[in-house]
Design a protein around this nucleic acid. Structure first.
Length: 309
DNA sequence: GTCCAGGATGGGT
DNA sequence: ACCCATCATGGA
């Protein structure tokens, strides 16, 4: 439990201008059907969750105002004095989460001329490549999701969060934070024994936490490398991080628009489905396909995933 | 019971 | 550079 939270006053809120080609309800529906949707609650078109920035905890409620602005109500805070920096970082986190600072008009232009994407961008109009801004969470979720079905992966993540994360109770509902890498770095494998993932995955997650705890691995350092190929090389040095995980993190956390997980089983099945193939497409076929969507590979993959629902 | 899941690793040819 | 068993469990 998180102690010492301050009421912030109901009038305290942040306003974030929404870009064009953004439909709040479509993004909300995406969040609702995620397998790892227990880090936020959605009721009456409001998203309620904990956001941690600058070492402080903020309990916020996000809603849309005429699909033109996001209104972020600050309900509780670990600090009695919320600074402009805090507000800026919260807005930045949410903008990053929903990928608000990206002009996707040229992706839509491209997609409308494409026989595979045309239908997907119509039925999911206004959907953003919703990300995982926190690097530790993104890496853990990828590792947990390796080679197991998503429903099971979601259960493992929930068990992990509810074992090692922090929570608050608000109006009878629990809200959780993702466990901190600092806490996980200090654990032994035995302390994860109740979570039914492979022993290797437990080692991977603790190892990643330790790399982050000793400051060898940070989001800033990775982004500082610039070239996504270089970042992939750096990420795959980490035990448990292969090409798929590196691509996944580059796409959903570091937000390189050209990177997508080419080995992803879900993506392969999605392509098979939308192209009505009898067999799974080969890697070369996928490369050729995505070459047409150059500079928007991440969005193309993200929208293709939606065809699986 | 069988096969597949948002893969990665270490060992072997 | 490719090939393969192994991991650990749940879903379909």
């Amino acid at each position: 439990m998180i102690a010492n939270l301050y009421e912030t006053g109901y009038k305290d809120h942040i306003s974030i201008k929404l870009p064009t080609e953004f439909e709040y309800k479509v993004n909300l529906n995406f969040l609702k059907r995620q397998r790892d949707n227990f880090l936020y609650q959605i009721e009456q078109e409001k998203i309620t969750r904990i956001i941690t920035v600058d070492g402080e905890t903020f309990f916020v409620q996000i809603s849309s105002h005429n699909n033109a602005y996001l209104t972020v109500k600050l309900l509780l805070s670990s600090t009695p004095t919320i600074t402009e920096k805090h507000r800026h970082l919260i807005a930045q986190f949410i903008s990053d989460w929903f990928d608000l600072n990206r002009d996707i008009s040229s992706f839509y232009k491209l997609a409308k001329e494409d026989c595979l994407l045309r239908h997907l961008v119509t039925s999911n109009y206004g959907l953003r490549n919703i990300g995982i801004p926190d690097l530790f969470e993104a890496l853990c979720w990828a590792v947990i999701g390796q080679q197991v079905n998503l429903k099971f992966a979601g259960r493992l993540k929930r068990e992990f969060v509810e074992s090692f994360g922090k929570s608050i109770e608000y109006n009878g509902t629990s809200y959780w934070t993702f466990p901190s890498y600092k806490k996980i770095a200090a654990l032994s494998k035995q302390q994860l024994s109740h979570i039914k993932m492979t022993e290797r995955k437990k080692e991977y997650i603790i190892g990643i936490a330790q790399e982050m705890a000793n400051n060898k691995l940070t989001k800033e350092k990775l982004i500082g490398l610039g070239d996504p190929k270089l970042i992939e090389k750096e990420l795959t040095k980490i035990h448990g991080v292969g090409p798929w995980t590196a691509h996944y993190v580059l796409m959903r956390c570091l937000r390189y628009p050209t990177v997508f997980p080419i080995d992803d089983v879900g993506l392969i099945n999605a392509i098979k489905h939308v192209k009505k193939l009898k067999q799974k497409p080969t890697k070369q076929q996928i490369e050729e396909l995505f070459y047409q969507w150059k500079n928007w590979e991440g969005y193309a993959a993200f929208y293709l995933w939606q065809s699986l629902y």
